[in-house]
Amino acid sequence: MQSIILKSLLEYPEFKDEFEQRFSPVLFSGKYQVFCQKILSLNPLSFESFVSVLSDDEKQSEEFLNLCAAVCVPDFLEYEHILKDTYKLNAQKHIGEKLIRAAQENQLLDLSLFESELTLANNDFMNFKQWLEYYKNKPVLAQIKSGISFIDSAFDGGFELAQLVLISGDAEAGKTSLGLQLLENISRVYPVCFFCFEFTIEQYLKRKTQNVPFKQENFFMINDGYDINEIVQNIKILSKRGVKIFLIDSQMRITSPRARNMEEEESLKFSTLAKLAHQYELLIFLIIQTAKGDRDNPMGSKKGTHEASVILRVERIEADKKDASQFNKEFDPNKRLFLVRKNKQTGKHFKEIVRFNDKTLTFCAMSENTDQPVQEVDFEKIQESIF
C-alpha cells in the first residue's frame, strides 16, 4: 500500500498540497519514509525528478522495485485512514511488547509516556491572532445568485459557498427541475457540474431547446462513478479547474462502503459531502428522498439533516375543484409550496406558494410569468461588471 500511495503521488502531483496536509512521513516505514521525504522536497514533482535524487543503494532496494511496479490509483488520498490505522496498530504492538518486558522484569512504567507514540502531530493549530489575520487577508467569498427571485429573497441575495444544500420534496413535485434551474442559472456566470445519475445525459439534452438559456461551456456533466469516493475525487479534480458549484441527483443513486447498518451507510454520504463543501469552499446541492412518515429527514439518515447547512423542500398542492380545468386532477399542475426547512446561512425560514410551469419545468414567484421567452444573457458584460 505504501508503494501505491507514493507512486500515485508522483503520477498525480496536483494533489501534493493536500497530501502534505493529510499524510506525515512518519506514517511510512523504512525506506518508504525516506522516499516520502524526498518526494515532498521536489519541485517540480515527477517520477524522473524523484529517481534523480536517489542513491544507487536506494535504486537497488526492494522498496524502490515495489514502487516501480505499483499500480497508480487516482483516489490514493482515501488510503489515509488505512495507513494511519496501520501505523497505530504497529505502534500499539511495539508498546505492548515494551509492557510485557517491563512486567516480566517487575518494572513499573509511566503509561502516559506512550501516548505520544499513538498521537500523530497536527501542524494546523493557530491562535486567535493568527486566525484573525488569516480571515482579514482572505478574499471574501462570492454570494451565488440563484436567478430565482423567491430563493434569492429567502437567502438575502443568494447562496454562500462552503455549504451542503439538500433539496427534498414530494414525488413528481419538481426536485430535479428546481436543482437544474438553479444550476443552469448559476452557470451563466460560474462553472458548474451536474452529476446526472437519475437519467441519461441524452435524456437531459432532449429536454433542452436549441436556444439554451445558459452558458454551455460552463456546464459540466458526469453520468458515471456512483461510489461516494469516486464522486469526491471528481469534485476535487473539477474544483482545481475552478468549478465550485455542484448538483448531485440523487441520494439513492450514490453508493457507499458497507457499514453495520443502513443508517451508517446513508449518513456517510452526507458527512462526506458536508466536510468536502466546507474544506474546499464549495456549494453542493444534493437531491434527496424522504419517507412519507418523515418529511424532515433524508431517507435512512437522520444525521443527514444535521450535516446540511440548508434544506429546501417542494410540495405539491391539491387541485382546486372549483377550477374546471383541474376537476379531474389530484394536484394543481402549476402551483407548488416552497419551503426553507433549515437555514444556517441567515437563520430565516421561508414558506411560499410559487408558480411551476409544467412545459418548461421551471419555477417562479406567483407574480411572475414563466411563459415569457428567456432573454439572452451577455456573459462578457456580466464578467466586466464583476471584475
Score class of each variant (00 low, 15 high):
Met1Ala: 14
Ser8Lys: 08
Glu11His: 07
Glu18Pro: 00
Glu18Asn: 09
Gln37Phe: 10
Leu42His: 09
Leu42Trp: 10
Phe47Glu: 11
Phe50Arg: 03
Asp56Arg: 08
Asp56Leu: 15
Glu63Gln: 11
Leu67Cys: 07
Cys72Thr: 14
Asp75Lys: 11
His81Arg: 12
Tyr87Gly: 05
Tyr87Met: 09
Leu89Thr: 13
Asn90Phe: 09
Asn90Trp: 05
Lys93Thr: 05
His94Lys: 13
His94Val: 06
Glu97Met: 09
Gln104Ala: 08
Gln104Gly: 12
Gln107Lys: 15
Phe114Pro: 00
Ser116Cys: 04
Leu132Arg: 10
Tyr134Ser: 01
Asn137Asp: 09
Asn137Ile: 06
Ile144Phe: 02
Ser146Met: 06
Phe150Asn: 03
Ser153Asp: 10
Leu161Trp: 07
Gly169Gln: 10
Val192Gln: 01
Tyr204Asp: 03
Lys206Leu: 15
Lys206Ala: 14
Glu217Trp: 07
Met221Phe: 13
Lys236Phe: 05
Gly242Cys: 01
Ser250His: 03
Pro257Met: 06
Ala259Gln: 11
Ala259Val: 03
Glu263Tyr: 12
Phe270Leu: 08
Ser271Arg: 02
Leu273Asn: 01
Ala277Lys: 04
Ile287Ala: 02
Thr290Asp: 00
Asp296Gly: 02
Lys303Leu: 04
Ala308Met: 11
Glu318Thr: 10
Pro333Ile: 15
Asn334Lys: 08
Thr346Asn: 08
Ile353Val: 15
Val354Tyr: 02
Arg355Ser: 07
Asp358Gly: 03
Phe363Lys: 08
Glu376Thr: 12
Glu384Thr: 11
